[in-house]
Design a protein around this nucleic acid. Structure first.
Lengths: 125, 125, 125, 125
DNA sequence: GTGGTCTAGACCACT
DNA sequence: GTGGTCTAGACCACA
């Protein structure tokens, strides 16, 4: 099974960011495991109908964060992460997101209880 | 008491967006009430050290969303919103934010309980 | 019975234009007849909650077009118009409006028949 | 064939409005079809001898109304509208215009028949 | 006095 | 290359 990626051109989040996010989420969820070989960027670019530059940028960022590693001439491979590392990453991303939202909830004058009930409501669907 | 606004020039969110957010939050929290006359855009521009255009853009967006109304030659005034309208707006913004976060939480494979405990933890601080 | 005027501050048509229009329409419909004495602009300004300047501007325009005449120290009076004059004015305004709309209808690629049926539909309500 | 636009600087309708109108009419008439790539705003600005800002403002409005979509770094593209959508839009704009006119016709005390005959007269030319 | 629009030119991020 | 944002300064119409 190959890599699954879906890109939204009209989104306001840059393409390279969408790529970064999708790959990192798949790694965190364990769908992409250590040693998996990512497809050649040129092929991926034509498959997704996007620019090579966007992919390169995403791959660079992923490598910077230790999620993949590039072996010149051989390709890009998903890094080996322990469950502990993956979990730490997961919690870090969740907290980042939560803090961003919380700032807004506070601006709206919402209490923790209100938010919790919104969360529960939202998840039931 | 005049209007309180703080702008961060180095932020990656555009100035006009920061202005929009601050004003709309103040309206939702009831700190800015119907009929309040916003300061002249040119005065505000020089006070904040920003361009008139950024303010104009924010005011345009606020007007399009029914939060203020501008009268040429007279000034810009906060719209009269009923408590019901304000609450609806508040809930709408909260839900928008929640859905954005939820998408990410789901990508990270988190359950509702996990999120709720994160929220509680986050709010205790 | 006094003069009836309703002004919408938030409208995008200038106040002086709203005044001009309402007065001229009343004259055309024969509700304001020759010799009728308009209220003092200062009183009207405070009654309507608008600026004297806006009224002055409207009165000036009306006088320019021969619809009222100002007698210094005595007030402003509606001009004596014959039925023929009133009808000519009515047709002129209608045609002006029609030409403005027609330009848009043509841009939208509508035929005369389409427009006529829209008119009939619109008037039935 | 490139995009055809004509701007009148001396008009009292803002440049960004003229742009919005011309583009939207061309989309409604089917002259601009889905996927068409609008010229770069900076090139268009220099071609038309106007400022980038005016174009940007028009493009923003068009995007807000779902008529085009812009992709940073790639350009602005005409949205894919079904014939049904285009027709609905066309009718909506026509009705808006008609209601504006009708208000005035009523103020002038005109019957539906009078208006219809005016329309027919006006279209014969 | 107010807001509405526009220009010319700049810097930045994305592809 | 593309669009996104911003500044500084100008001219106009409205109240």
């Amino acid at each position: 099974m190959g890599l699954k990626l879906s890109i939204v051109n009209t989104s306001d989040t840059p393409i390279y960011r969408q790529l970064y996010d999708e790959i990192s989420y798949q790694i965190i969820r364990g769908e992409l495991t250590g040693g998996f070989c990512l497809p050649p960027i040129r092929q991926l670019a034509s498959d997704l109908g996007i620019s090579v530059i966007s992919i390169k940028r995403a791959w660079d960022d992923l490598e910077r964060d230790g999620l993949i590693s590039t072996m010149v001439g051989r390709g890009c491979f998903v890094a080996d992460l322990s469950i502990v590392e993956r979990d730490a990453l997961r919690k870090k991303l969740a907290l980042e997101q939560l803090e961003k939202s919380s700032r807004i909830y506070r601006e709206l004058g919402m209490s923790a209880d209100e938010i919790v009930s919104l969360v529960r409501e939202n998840y039931r669907e």
